[in-house]
């Protein structure tokens, strides 16, 4: 099962490190990362494989959102199906 992690907020040092560390801690493999700057906002999108994760996905999603809140970033982990459903026929 794959999920999409999105990070939106003000650019700062260590965002990628922090999010990928949390993924590694739970045996979540990062498949792909794209970064872009929209206006002056930083946006990072990570495609991850959560098949071998050691925590339930909902718990991971809550943790990663909380980490984002600490850093003043909006971080969401969502099942990839929601994006596939909406953007592919």
């Amino acid at each position: 099962m794959r999920a999409v992690i999105t990070v939106i907020g003000k650019d700062m040092v260590g965002i990628l490190a922090k999010v990928s560390t949390e993924c590694a801690r739970h045996n979540i493999n990062v498949i792909e990362v794209t970064q872009s700057v929209l206006q002056d906002l930083f946006a990072m999108i990570m495609m991850v494989d959560i098949s071998d994760s050691d925590v339930p996905f909902t718990a991971f999603a809550e943790t990663i959102t909380a980490i984002g809140a600490e850093m003043g970033l909006s971080i969401h982990a969502m099942h990839e199906d929601i994006f596939n459903a909406m953007h592919t026929i």
Partner: peptide, 16 residues
């Protein structure tokens, strides 16, 4: 394959 614009569009729809 999903692209960044589509993903951000979905996030914006939900969040904002």
């Amino acid at each position: 394959m999903l692209n960044a614009r589509d993903i951000l569009e979905t996030i914006t729809m939900i969040q904002q």
